[in-house]
Amino acid sequence: MSLSLIRLAFVACLGIALAGCTSTASDTTMSGAPIASAATLATPAAFAPTDSAPGTFARAKPYFVEFRARSAMSYGHTFAVFGVLDQNGRVPTDANGVLIPNMTEVTGLHPASTSNVPYTIGHVLPVPSETGPSDGDTENAYMTARYRIDLTEAQYRDLVAFIRKKQSSSPVWHAVLYNCSAYVGDIAKHLGLKTPNSMLFPKEYINKLEELNS
């Protein structure tokens, strides 16, 4: 094996050891989540804030963003859920602990594929990404950490506009240079929050995010 190939392999292994994001189908499947198609993963929830959203004006801050980490076979995934709180002031889920799609939406950065190949390449070179949900993001069963911020309508609309701008910028995914935690960190910074090092593993990243802002 040539010296250049050895160096390339070393960089890839280093990225795998240090980075804080994964969203491949095989990772979540091994932890119990079903495989979804790339088209399904790229489709965001339909929720958008409206004046008629149930319970939205019963409290001063009826909207929310929740920064989350979930498990996977490697080091996990960091992402955000945003939407309108239910009538009890909680993040809306059904009886199975799955996010209710017409009241919530998921955003997170991950390779634009259910294949392991772009994910592996992304530990060396930037790869095309998706910024919607990845497999397992909507299920509480896979959550390892979460930190919620409640928002007024004005704050929420501003946040949604920022997220839409981030999504339209077509960011690339790289395990070290710009991973899922870095993407979530940009959203947190927009809210004026302090953010930890994006090289932390997802669970530690979210817990540290809460610690820094509590």
Rank of each mutant, 00 (worst) to 15 (best):
K165Y: 01
Y205V: 01
H190P: 07
L193H: 04
L193K: 14
G185W: 01
N197A: 04
G185L: 00
I206R: 06
D158Y: 10
S169I: 02
T195I: 06
K165A: 07
A188I: 03
A188Q: 08
T195R: 01
K189Y: 01
Y178D: 15
R164A: 09
K203N: 11
I187W: 05
L191V: 02
Q167A: 10
P202K: 13
F162A: 04
T195A: 04
Y183K: 10
V176R: 05
V176G: 06
L200T: 00
V172E: 14
P202V: 05
S169F: 01
W173N: 11
L200K: 06
S198V: 00
V184S: 08
P202R: 13
Y205W: 10
P196T: 02
M199E: 15
V176Q: 10
I206Y: 03
S170F: 03
Y205C: 07
F162H: 11
G192H: 09
V176M: 15
S170A: 15
D186L: 11
E204C: 00
K203A: 12
S181V: 01
H190A: 08
P171C: 07
Y205Q: 05
S168R: 14
I163T: 06
I163D: 07
I187K: 04
S198I: 00
V160W: 04
C180E: 05
Y205M: 05
S168T: 12
T195D: 02
S168K: 12
K194D: 08
D158N: 15
W173D: 09
S169C: 05
K166V: 07
Y183E: 11
S170K: 15
S198K: 13
Y183F: 10
R164P: 00
K189P: 03
Y205R: 10
I187P: 07
K189F: 00
